[in-house]
Simulated assay, not measured.
Amino acid sequence: MSDLQREVSELERTSATAARLFDIRLIIGGLFTVYGVIVTVAGFTASDADLKKAEDININLWTGLGMLVLGLFFLAWMKLRPVIPPTAEELAAAEEAPPAH
């Protein structure tokens, strides 16, 4: 394998890693999951006075569970449908193509 091919394959691996790292689904899913856990724990520890304020509905518990489900959905989506960055050939072809207006 020539040095150029080795360098291109290394850049493709780095690009794939960066694309997965900065996938917005990871950030949204992670934040919703963490906050969902926190709010769910707050819902489990709700006092009778807190429940009375919310007309006997444990808002923290239901909101926390909803956030947890949404966060896990985003993380599962990211895992099942990962971002595939374009290859060097696709990038070269895109640069050669005339710009679309």
Rank of each mutant, 00 (worst) to 15 (best):
F73K: 06
K52Y: 13
K52N: 12
V41W: 12
L70G: 02
N58T: 08
F74N: 08
M67D: 02
A54Y: 07
D48S: 15
M78C: 07
N60Q: 09
A42P: 00
V37M: 10
D48N: 14
L72W: 05
F73Q: 06
T87E: 02
T63V: 13
A42Q: 13
V37E: 00
S47T: 15
L70A: 13
E90M: 08
A76K: 11
V69L: 14
P86E: 10
I38L: 12
A46G: 07
L68R: 05
M67I: 00
I38E: 06
E55A: 13
K53D: 14
K53T: 14
E89G: 09
D48V: 12
P85G: 03
F74Y: 15
L72A: 13
T63W: 02
T45I: 09
L51Y: 08
N58R: 04
N60K: 07
P82Q: 06
T40I: 00
L75H: 05
M67A: 11
A49K: 14
D50S: 13
D56Y: 09
I84N: 08
L51D: 06
W77Y: 10
L80E: 05
A49E: 15
L68G: 10
L75I: 12
D48Y: 05
A88V: 11
N60A: 11
P86C: 01
L75C: 05
A42T: 01
A49W: 09
G36A: 04
V69D: 01
S47K: 10
V39C: 01
I57G: 00
D50E: 15
N60E: 07
A54I: 01
G43L: 04
L51N: 08
G36I: 01
A54C: 06
N58Q: 08
R81D: 10
L65W: 03
K53I: 12
F74G: 01
L51Q: 07
E89M: 07
L80Q: 09
T45H: 11
F74M: 12
G64I: 00
V69Q: 03
V39F: 04
Y35R: 06
L51E: 06
S47G: 15
E55R: 12
V37K: 01
A54E: 14
L61S: 04
V37Y: 03
F73T: 13
F44I: 12
Y35K: 05
I38F: 12
W77L: 10
A76C: 10
L70C: 06
V69A: 15
L61Q: 05
T87S: 15
D50G: 15
V41I: 15
I84R: 11
F44M: 13
A76F: 15
P85Q: 03
D48G: 12
L65Y: 04
V37P: 00
F44Q: 09
L65P: 00
T63C: 05
L61H: 03
N60M: 03
L61F: 12
A46P: 04
L51K: 08
I38V: 13
F73V: 14
T40H: 03
V39R: 09
I84G: 00
W62H: 10
F44G: 14
P82S: 05
G71C: 03
G66L: 09
L75G: 04
K52E: 15
A54K: 03
L61W: 02
G43K: 03
M67H: 00
A54F: 07
T45A: 14
M78E: 07
I84E: 11
A54L: 06
K53Y: 02
D50A: 14
A46L: 08
L75N: 04
W77V: 00
Y35W: 11
T63R: 08
V39I: 14
N58A: 06
